[in-house]
Nucleic acid binder design. Structure first.
Lengths: 199, 199
DNA sequence: CCTACCGATCGGTAGG
DNA sequence: CCTACCGATCGGTAGG
C-alpha cells in the first residue's frame, strides 16, 4: 500500500467506474450475449467473482452501463433548457462528439439491435428510450414550427421519427466505414433543408 | 417411407431449405453469436451433427442465409433494369414487403449491428453490401437529376447515404414498435420532398 | 476481493 | 442422417 492509500470507499468507487468503462467497451465490441464477465474482469485486473461483488448479475451490469451513459448525455443535452432548433443543434453536436467515442456508438448500435428481441434484458430500456427520444425531438420541431422556422410541409412527428432513424442508421454506416462517415455533417444538411433560417 | 418417397436429392434439397429458413429466424431472434446450431437443428427435426452435414460450419450457414436473401431481393429489385425514381420506388416497395416479414428485418438489423465488429464472420459481407447499396441508390438519384426530377440542392451522394441510413434506422424503430411504424410511408414522404414530380 | 467449483451449453469431430 | 464424445467457456455460487 502506498502513502495515501486510506479511503477504501474511494478505491471501491474507482474500481466500479473502471468496470463500467471496460464493460461498455466489451458490450460494444461483442454485444451483451457475446461479452463475458470473465473478459471484462480480466481487463480490470480482477477475477470474475470479484466483478460480481460490485454488480450482482451480468444483467445489472448492462443496465448500469446504459444508465450511466444516458445520465451523462441527458445532462449534456440540457433537456429542460434548450428548445426548438437549439435542441436539434444539441443533438447534432452530440453526434459530432460521439464520432470521437467509438465505444459509445458501438454500445448503443449493437445492444439496441440485440434488444429488439422481447426477452433481452435491455428490451424495455430501449423501448422507453426510443419513445422519449422521438417525443423530445418532436417537441423541438413543434417549437420550431411555432417560431416560424420550419418550411411548409415539414411535419414535426414525421420529422422527429426520421431524425432519430437517420442518427441510428448513420452510426451503423460510420462503424463500417472506419469512422470516415461525417455523421454530424449529414444530419446538419438534413435539418437545414427543413428550415427557413440558417442552422 | 410413404409412397413416392423416391428422389433422395429432392428431399435433401428440401431439408436444406428448411434449415436456411429456421436459421434465418433464429439468427434474427438471437443474433449470430446468440443462436446455437443445436436449437436450429431441433427446429428442423434433426440433430446438430445432422445439420453440419448440410453446412460444414456455423459461419458457412450464416453466409448461406445472407446470400440467399440477397439473391432473392436483388432479383426482385431488378437492379439492371430499373433506373432513376423507378429504382427508388422499388426500394420503398421492398420496405413495404419487408413489413410483412419480421424475420428478415430482424436478421439484417441484428446481424449487421453485430457485424460492425471487425472479427465478425459477416463483417466483410456487410461492408460490401453497404457500399453497393449506397452506390446503387446514388446512381438512381443521379439519373433522377438528369431527368430533371430532383429539386435544387438535393445532392445524389448525400441523399443516397441518408436514404439507406433511414431504412436501417426505421427498421430498428419498427421492431421496437411492434411493427406499427409505417416504414414505407415515411420513406415515401422523405423521397417525395426531394422530387419535383409526383412519387 | 480470492480459489474452486457447479451445471449447462457451446461448435465441432469420431465413428458408424 | 445418428449417438457419443471432445475441450472450452459460460453465469453464478460456496466458502473463506
Amino acid at each position: 500500500m502506498t502513502a495515501g492509500a486510506r479511503g477504501g470507499y474511494a478505491k471501491g468507487r474507482a474500481k466500479r467506474t473502471e468496470i463500467l468503462d471496460q464493460a461498455m467497451a466489451l458490450f460494444g465490441e461483442a454485444g451483451y450475449r457475446g461479452a463475458s464477465l470473465r473478459v471484462i474482469a480480466t481487463r480490470c485486473g480482477i477475477s470474475h467473482p470479484g466483478l460480481l461483488h460490485h454488480f450482482p448479475t451480468k444483467e445489472a451490469l448492462l443496465l448500469a452501463v446504459l444508465q450511466r451513459r444516458d445520465d451523462v448525455d441527458d445532462e449534456w443535452l440540457a433537456l429542460g433548457v434548450t428548445r426548438g432548433i437549439d435542441h436539434l443543434r444539441r443533438l447534432v453536436d452530440l453526434a459530432e462528439l460521439n464520432a470521437k467515442r467509438r465505444g459509445i456508438v458501438e454500445l448503443f448500435s449493437v445492444v439496441a439491435a440485440e434488444a429488439t428481441s422481447p426477452d433481452h434484458p435491455a428490451h424495455a430500456y430501449f423501448e422507453a428510450r426510443y419513445r422519449t427520444s422521438v417525443a423530445n425531438t418532436e417537441r423541438a420541431y413543434a417549437q420550431a414550427r411555432e417560431a416560424g422556422e420550419l418550411r411548409d410541409g415539414v411535419e414535426p412527428a414525421a420529422a422527429a421519427q426520421q431524425f432519430i432513424a437517420l442518427m441510428d442508421g448513420l452510426q451503423i454506416q460510420w462503424l463500417f466505414s472506419d469512422c470516415t462517415t461525417d455523421m454530424a455533417g449529414v444530419l446538419r444538411g438534413y435539418v437545414q433543408a427543413q428550415l427557413t433560417v440558417r442552422f
